[in-house]
Each structure stands twice: as structure tokens, then as C-alpha cells.
Design a protein around this nucleic acid. Structure first.
Length: 669
DNA sequence: GCTGAATCAGTGTT
DNA sequence: CAACACTGATTCAG
């Protein structure tokens, strides 16, 4: 048992002067602070008369719609101070909204939940209270306290859309009020003051709408989704009414490698407590104190409550950015004290992952092993179906049945136009001498984009547009110009895999940030008149821009930027210069394997650029939201136009949809 | 209720 | 690139 603690671990009865470390706060617990290693057995003894606080036994309500799934989902504890059982949303959350930074006034509309409060709304520092825009984007007061998958997605997408837009404005120096070095902070603060956040009510256990395996690219995303409240702190805690008194229990931790955590194992974490001059440059560290997060973890180690674990790591492809993975619920199994390198005493907490949860971090570990070749894959068929056509190999895997290959096709990276294809519309690229610079209105390509550089400096699409104008081969700018995102090939390790019931599908071994270019729809451009014939002949690989696609909002909310910078038409309708129909049956790339979903992870965006002094249209796919590794990539196939016109015969060409989403329309095609 | 301290960020620079 | 400096936001303690 003690061997499992690692070589560095010091027996608690060792030379450390415990009193020196532990004497900081009067401890209200009757239990010894650190149980001896020999006592830390499951049969942990509580003093007689002390009944452990553990209200998870009898779930009286099912968690909201299919979040993490599985029987392991505990019933969330209601917050202390929050009256239990009040069914309606009226005054339930009093006490947790006292420090409202949002929604002070809702522009005339009634605010029932604040009715009981004494009306001492004195304006803070002569600033007018921010307008509550929650309703505008569809977040009710109740949803701010308790989220759902839809609300979490909405909040996170609002955040990233705004952050991307702020980056764009900053890079183009279009901001009216100073510069924004931290678009993540600005975006988060803007959303929070307008009430665009969710799961504000703290809870133990899973958070409705956040699924195990979800990934985040900023700490602020954890914050507004309600997964982990502190903007920097690694330990989030909440007050709980225990058997006899109020206690502070840990509800979630972030382990991102800043301390000497041992997080190599995918089901175990040795987490280091907070404090102790760990970040000071002087080598001498001081003893950590048993207060704040450390105290909460200590309490939780005895109450055995579930603690959410978020694992942070450096992105392999993007070393300057960090990725946070929600790895589900853990329990603290053991805790002890160690001597840190700098000399101070540190608290260590051993967390064990609750069994039966969907895999999350372990998927990352597996991918790591596959990539390094240190582990064999089951069902592995081919290392690269592109046969070198892509700079990153596209693997082929079948873990489902014995089919070894998709039907034959030629891998091709872009569009092939028929000889007869003629645009008769001469066009010219930009005349920039180096790389095109955001905000440079001398660049004709930027002017075509209504003055906005369509991508951020890290190559992420800022917003959906009627048409994205990229620089192309005809442009004079350098090939490294950042306005050629969709022409630079695959950037992720893609994989064609056999799905359980939908044939072959596409996924990525790498995490993908929202707005990242994934691939274009490659294939042969076909004449519009031939489409129905091709379909009759069984061509299932047709992309048709003239189909009817459902509308969805992806761009930032312009009203959030009223005082910050210019905003404009937020229309997300496409404007095709001409209809484009592509068949990927004989020639195509990975895009031909993407399946349909009614709640997709990917969307398409028309892109044009100049080739041979003519502008050619392309279909580019971008990530709709952050996509964890090994998640199937899907987009919305839309409806054939004839279906709408002919009505009753509509079902003829339709297929039963197997996307399995809660918003499934039942059929597509 | 207010203020300031604490904190497993994120960028940019050397 | 690793170390460092710098500017931060949120929450909680006092």
C-alpha cells in the first residue's frame, strides 16, 4: 500500500514537524487531519456518533437529459443556503445570486427573482448596469443556475465567437477603446456581466451539460460553463451543510502540470495542495497551510465526495496553448505530507477515478501511444489512405467488422473542373508584396472580405460569412500569407474508421479548436443537370451547395460589442457566386467520409480564391465547436430542394438518420 | 458591503 | 525554447 505512494513520499510520522504545518487554523473537525497510512483503509473509522456526510445514496431525480449517462451519475447536492425542494425558479436560488454581477436591470422586463430583495440598487461607480442579454441569446435565469447540453454549448460558443472577434479587431487595430491583449478575459467578462453563463449553482458531482471528455482551451471556459469557478485557482470548493456544521468540500480540481503532480496514470492522480511559494522564483519554498483549497480537499478526503478532475496539458501541435480535458469524477483515497524540493512541506492527495465512466484522458494516452508506435492498434488497416497526398497521414481503422477497405476511389486534395467548365469572369488577386496584414485596406482580398481579415493570427475562422475571399495562386503575396487557410492541407491526424451502423466515418486523433479549418470537400465538379442522374446511379458522395441547409448561429452577438468596437451585419447566410456541385465518388479526400448529423461537429463555408485569373469556389469545413480526439466529425447534409417542391414524394430519396442526437430530424437526404 | 490577497493564466520578451 | 516579467479576473477571506 505504501509502495503506491511513490518514492518521494514521506511517512506521515516522519521527521516533518506536523504542528508547524498544521497549526494555522483551528480545525473544526473531530477527525484526525491526516490519517496514518496504516489507517487509511476503506474501513475508515469515524468516532462514534459521527455519521459521515454522504447523501449520494438515494437519487430522487434523474439528471437532466443524457449528460454523462451511466448509472454512476450521482445526484447533485443542493447548495447550502439554497432552500431545498422549491420547485419553481422563482426564489430558489436566493443567496447564490446575491453577488450578481449580471442582470441588475433587464431593460424594463420584470425580474421576479429579485423582487424580494431590498431595493438598494445603488449604481456601482457611476456605471450604468450592463444590459442582461441572456434572453437575447436564449438563457433563462434558471438556466444560469442549472445548465443543459444546449445551454453549455450556447455559452461556450458565444464565448469563443466573441473571443475570435476580439482577436480580429485587435489584430486589425480597429478597437476604439485601447488594445485587448487578453481576448479570453475580455470575452468572458463581457459575457458574465450580461448573464451569459451557466451552472452558477455550485454542486458536487457532474455538471449538467458538461460531458466527460469535453475539452476547453481557456480556464475561462471552465468558469462560464460552471465546471470550475476559479479563474486561476486549481481547487474549487463549496460550503455544505454537514451533519453538525457547515463544511467546505472540494468539488473540482485542475491538474495542469504547474505543480509536481503525478498524473501519468489515467485513473489516478497525485495532486499537490496549493500555496507554499510555489511560483516564487526563490528556491526556498515555505510550508503549505491547511486552509482554503487544501482544507477543502482534506475534508473531502474524509467525506469521500466526488471531485471533478480537469486535466490540463500542453497541446502537442500548439505548444503555447493549453488544453483542458474534463476527465470525470474522482474520489480522494489518501492524503499525506511530503517535503518539496524547495524544502517546504506540501500536501498530497491521491485521487482515484470512479469506475464505469466514459473514457476521456485515457483516450489521449492511447492516441499518444499509437502515434509513438509503442502500442499496437486493434483493427488497424492502413497507415495512410492518402498515399502521401496529405502531409499528415490519414489512417484507416476498422474495429467493428471484417471489411478491409472502403470502395475504391482516387485520393485527390482539391477540386477537378471539367474542360467545359468556364466562368468567363476574369478576376485578379491582391498585389501585397509580403504576407497580407489584417487591417490593410490596400489589399484587395481584404477589401473583398468587407475589410475584415477572415482568420485570426492563429488561423482560426472568425465568423461565418457570405463568402470568404482567400488569397490564391494569382495573388502576389507570399505563400505564407495567413489568408490561405483552406489551401494548406490537413493539419490534424485524420482517421477513416468503420462506424457501428453508418458505414465509414471520419474522426481526428488530435483535438480540434472551434473555428479550425479541417478540410475542403474535394472531388469532381459536375454539371447541375447531371445531379439527379448521378444520384439515381448511386453516387452517395455528392456535395450540392443548392440544397437547403438549416440556419444556425455561430458568429458573435453584435450587441455585446456595442461599446468596444465596430460591429456589423451578423447575417450568416451564404451568397454563392454560382452553384457548386461536387462528386467525390471517383476522386476525393477525407471529406467524402464525413457522415450526416442533425447536431454536427463541423460546418461548411464557401471560400473563393483566384486561380489563373479566375475566381473559383470551394467548400471548406470548419470545426463548429471544440472537438475532442476520436470524436466523429459530422456535418448537416441539408435537404434536397426537390423534396420541398414535390412534397409527398419527398420521402423517396430520404435516408433514415442514425445520428442519434436528441435533436435528430429522423431523416436526411 | 467593500477591499485586497491568493491563485495549477496567458502573452510577450529575452 | 526556457525563464522571466507583466497584467490580469474571479472568488473568498477579513
Amino acid at each position: 500500500m505504501e509502495e503506491g505512494l511513490g518514492q518521494n513520499s514521506v511517512p506521515p510520522q516522519g521527521p516533518i514537524d506536523k504542528s508547524r504545518i498544521l497549526d494555522v487554523k483551528p480545525l473544526r473537525s473531530l477527525i484526525p487531519i491526516f490519517s496514518m497510512a496504516s489507517q487509511a483503509s476503506p474501513s475508515a473509522q469515524y468516532p462514534s456518533g459521527f455519521s459521515p456526510f454522504f447523501p449520494f445514496g438515494a437519487p430522487q431525480q434523474t439528471p437532466t437529459g443524457g449528460t454523462t449517462g451511466g448509472a454512476a451519475t450521482p445526484t447533485p447536492i443542493r447548495a447550502y443556503r439554497s432552500p431545498l425542494g422549491a420547485g419553481d425558479t422563482g426564489s430558489t436560488m436566493e443567496g447564490f445570486t446575491d453577488q450578481d454581477t449580471y442582470g441588475k436591470k433587464k431593460r424594463g422586463s420584470p425580474q421576479p427573482r429579485r423582487a424580494a430583495k431590498s431595493s438598494v440598487d445603488k449604481p456601482k461607480k457611476s456605471q450604468e448596469p450592463p444590459v442582461d442579454l441572456g434572453d437575447l441569446v436564449g438563457i433563462s435565469p434558471a438556466q444560469r443556475d442549472d445548465g443543459s447540453r444546449e445551454v453549455v454549448n450556447l455559452v461556450l460558443m458565444s464565448f469563443d465567437a466573441l473571443r475570435r472577434r476580439l482577436c480580429q479587431l485587435e489584430e486589425a487595430k480597429e478597437l476604439s477603446s485601447g488594445s485587448i491583449k487578453r481576448a479570453d478575459l475580455k470575452a468572458c467578462n463581457t459575457l458574465m456581466t450580461r448573464g451569459i453563463r451557466t451552472n452558477m449553482r455550485k454542486r458536487i458531482g457532474s455538471v449538467p451539460g458538461v460531458e466527460i471528455g469535453d475539452i476547453f482551451f481557456f480556464r475561462m471556459e471552465l468558469c462560464i460553463a460552471g465546471l470550475h469557478a476559479p479563474s486561476m485557482g486549481g481547487i474549487d470548493a463549496m460550503h455544505i451543510r454537514g451533519e453538525f456544521e457547515e463544511e467546505t468540500l472540494a468539488v473540482s480540481i485542475v491538474s495542469s502540470g504547474e505543480y509536481d503532480d503525478d498524473a501519468e496514470d489515467s485513473d489516478v492522480i497525485i495532486y499537490t495542495g496549493q500555496g507554499g511559494n510555489f511560483f516564487k522564483k526563490d528556491k526556498h519554498t515555505i510550508d503549505q497551510k491547511l486552509h482554503r483549497g487544501n482544507l477543502a480537499l482534506d475534508r473531502s478526503s474524509r467525506q469521500h465526495n466526488e471531485v471533478r478532475v480537469i486535466r490540463g496539458m500542453r497541446d502537442g501541435a500548439n505548444p503555447n496553448s493549453k488544453i483542458y480535458v474534463y476527465d470525470g469524477l474522482y474520489k480522494i483515497q489518501d492524503s499525506w505530507i511530503e517535503k518539496a524540493k524547495g524544502g517546504g512541506g506540501v500536501f498530497k492527495y491521491k485521487l482515484i477515478r470512479t469506475p464505469g465512466q466514459p473514457s476521456a484522458f485515457s483516450v489521449w494516452k492511447s492516441v499518444q501511444k499509437w502515434k509513438s508506435g509503442s502500442s499496437e492498434r486493434t483493427g488497424f488497416i492502413l497507415a495512410d489512405i492518402s498515399a502521401g497526398a496529405e502531409s499528415i497521414p490519414v489512417s484507416l481503422v476498422n474495429e467493428v467488422d471484417n471489411v478491409k477497405m472502403p470502395t475504391q476511389f482516387n485520393y485527390f486534395h482539391s477540386l477537378r473542373h471539367p474542360k467545359s467548365f468556364s466562368l468567363m469572369k476574369p478576376s485578379h488577386g491582391c498585389a501585397c508584396t509580403k504576407a497580407c496584414v489584417p487591417g490593410d485596406l490596400n489589399c484587395s482580398c481584404i477589401r473583398r472580405n468587407e475589410g475584415d481579415f477572415p482568420y485570426t493570427g492563429s488561423g482560426i475562422l472568425v465568423g461565418r460569412k457570405q463568402l470568404v475571399h482567400e488569397c490564391g495562386p494569382t495573388c502576389q503575396c507570399f505563400p505564407n500569407c495567413k489568408n490561405r487557410v483552406s489551401q494548406t492541407g490537413l493539419k490534424h491526424h485524420m482517421e477513416v474508421f468503420k462506424t457501428k451502423n453508418r458505414g465509414w466515418g471520419l474522426r481526428s486523433l488530435d483535438p480540434i479548436r472551434a473555428g479550425t479549418f479541417i478540410c475542403e470537400y474535394a472531388g469532381e465538379v459536375v454539371d447541375r443537370a447531371k445531379v439527379s442522374q448521378l444520384v439515381r446511379e448511386g453516387d452517395e458522395y455528392i456535395f450540392d451547395t443548392t440544397r437547403i441547409y438549416g440556419q444556425f448561429k455561430w458568429n458573435y452577438e453584435p450587441r455585446l460589442l456595442e461599446e468596444i468596437g465596430p460591429n456589423e451585419d451578423s447575417s450568416e447566410d451564404y451568397a454563392m457566386p454560382y452553384p457548386l456541385i461536387i462528386s467525390a465518388k471517383n476522386f476525393g479526400n477525407v471529406a467524402r467520409f464525413m457522415n450526416h448529423s442533425c447536431s454536427p461537429t463541423v460546418f461548411w463555408q464557401p471560400v473563393v480564391y483566384e486561380e489563373n485569373n479566375q475566381s473559383y469556389l470551394h467548400v471548406a469545413f470548419f470545426a463548429l465547436r471544440h472537438i475532442p480526439p476520436m470524436t466523429e466529425l459530422t456535418y448537416d447534409y441539408g435537404f434536397a430542394r426537390s423534396d420541398h417542391a414535390e412534397g409527398s414524394s419527398a420521402a423517396k430519396g430520404r435516408k433514415k438518420c442514425l445520428c442519434g442526437s436528441s435533436k435528430c430530424r429522423g431523416s436526411f437526404g
